[in-house]
Nucleic acid binder design. Structure first.
Lengths: 140, 140
DNA sequence: CGGGATCCTTCTTGATACTG
DNA sequence: CAGTATCAAGAAGGATCCCG
């Protein structure tokens, strides 16, 4: 595989403007962002519902990620001035469009993950990307 | 915006199989992976060329990221047994296909970064996602 | 030239406790 | 309920030195 490709062909066209690409990648590269937005893609939810729907997230990370998403206009935050406070979050159209892009990535993942997995397994046996026990447990 | 969307519509369809999506996201969420693969999309390169082409990367990260990419079958590593050692890296078809997906993300970024930027600026003024000086310098 | 092995510093994150 | 504030632990990243 990858026997003969013509070099210089596809996409050598971002010299220095990789700034916003990095911004987007920093956002979706964040574990919680994807989980939160995908959960919100079901519909608007309140804080506690999100917390319950996403196992393992701390309030700190939930709050922080929600703020980042709100700041970038990917979600809206609506606080109702009631006696027991109620706050609801919802994806904006912008956030929804990002989800589409993420789903595209998910499509690639679904299409190629087995290939990646077998490559990885083969490398593991031959000792290419071998990790040193301390790494083998969990990657972050 | 995002005034009335029908809930439950788009993409509520990954309950627990988000495992490989995370794998892919962990990979492209990594700052150096994208820079390296996009550089390699120009054509095969040797270690020192990559190091020179990517400003600010350390040998440690370059080597490590290259190993991860090789392990997953996204690039190939070819070592020539010469007197001054020569090692060349090249994207595989798999790696190239991932680049396509990344370029799709770049497309989203290009289309919406101004919108995100203005949202962010507006939030900055109203104090929504305000950071506390220690965060404002660099986000990782 | 192309890394491998260490050390050391910084940033991120989870846990916990407190508040409007 | 919906956060905020503080703290400690761990991982990621850079710098440096060395080897084949």
């Amino acid at each position: 595989m990858a026997s003969e490709r013509q070099v210089g062909g596809p996409c050598q066209s971002w010299p220095k403007d990789s700034a916003f690409i990095r911004e987007v990648l920093d956002r979706i590269g964040d574990k919680w962002t994807v989980l939160i937005t995908s959960t919100l893609s079901i519909g608007r939810m309140r804080y506690s519902d999100l917390h319950a729907s996403i196992p393992g997230i701390s309030q700190r990370m939930l709050t922080q990620t929600l703020k980042h998403l709100e700041r970038d206009g990917l979600i809206t935050r609506t606080a109702y001035p009631e006696v027991p406070p109620r706050v609801e979050y919802e994806l904006t159209d912008l956030g929804l469009s990002l989800m589409d892009a993420v789903m595209a990535m998910a499509g690639w993942a679904a299409a190629h993950h087995s290939e990646v997995a077998s490559n990885r397994a083969a490398s593991e046996l031959s000792g290419v990307g071998r990790r040193k026990s301390s790494e083998s447990a969990s990657a972050r």
